[in-house]
């Protein structure tokens, strides 16, 4: 009974994605087809598969960054399932603001905004008071061991690993119901990877639903509640 009532946070059904490269004589690249995937609260589904198999593409389809070529991607938002395929841009932006976070390998730097402000932003956007937002942002940056001297600076000049930690802080501080992680630990050292694993586990314990891609074996094993093999959905052109 209870199991039936718990609706998945992410429900991917029959998802197909292909690219048509008009620059190259209309060549079509089929990435995957008929893909089904459900992710529930507290689950971290780790995507497995060789390079170029479509792991990032799947995550981007779930985030609404890529359009779907067929099938549906349903997100539980405000207690209702929203199919991204038919959703308005406003709805997708609202889902991204309140329900679904995305951490990629790269931080899109906004040149003049300080690190602390960047991390506070997702909280402020969601109506958290400035005081609380700052306290939470400080705690998050401290737990990621980013030197405090950096906090008032825009991350433009930070090292790759430092920028990535800012990126992670931004997404985890918010406690999104859904988190999509595309190699968030790629340029981190072992100690920092361990911290990120702790963050992931804490978020799962609070009920987040996650899809992750991790290159690092140890992170993958530690974070995953289950693996998803993308290769079986591989399509030809």
């Amino acid at each position: 009974m209870t199991k039936k009532l718990e609706r998945p946070m992410i429900k991917v059904e029959g998802l197909t994605k292909r690219f048509t490269l008009h620059q190259h004589g209309g060549a079509r690249i089929g990435v995957f087809g008929g893909l089904d995937l459900e992710v529930k609260k507290g689950e971290c589904v780790v995507l497995a598969g060789a390079s170029g198999m479509g792991k990032s593409t799947l995550i981007r389809c779930v985030y609404g960054n890529y359009l779907t070529s067929g099938g549906s991607v349903k997100i539980l938002h405000d207690g209702a399932e929203v199919d991204l395929a038919g959703a308005t841009p406003q709805t997708i932006l609202d889902i991204r603001r309140r329900t679904m976070g995305y951490v990629s390998q790269f931080l899109r730097v906004i040149p003049r905004v300080s690190t602390l402000q960047l991390v506070m932003e997702p909280l402020l956007e969601n109506g958290v008071s400035a005081e609380e937002a700052e306290a939470r942002a400080r705690a998050m940056l401290a737990s990621l061991k980013l030197p405090e001297a950096h906090w008032s600076l825009p991350p433009a000049t930070f090292s790759g690993g430092e920028q990535q930690r800012v990126n992670i802080a931004r997404s985890f501080v918010r406690e999104y119901p859904i988190l999509l992680l595309d190699e968030p630990t790629a340029s981190l050292d072992a100690a920092n990877r361990g911290i990120v694993v702790d963050l992931i586990k804490a978020a799962l314990a609070k009920g987040s639903a996650m899809i992750g891609i991790f290159h690092d074996e140890s992170v993958r094993e530690a974070a995953a509640t289950r693996f998803f093999e993308i290769e079986s959905y591989k399509t030809a052109a």
Binding site: H22, R60, G64, Y66, L67, I92
Partner: peptide, 14 residues
């Protein structure tokens, strides 16, 4: 037309 990041990352029209 579409979300900015979608149009730029997954452009559909030639």
């Amino acid at each position: 037309t579409g979300l900015t990041d979608q149009v730029l990352d997954d452009a559909q029209h030639p």
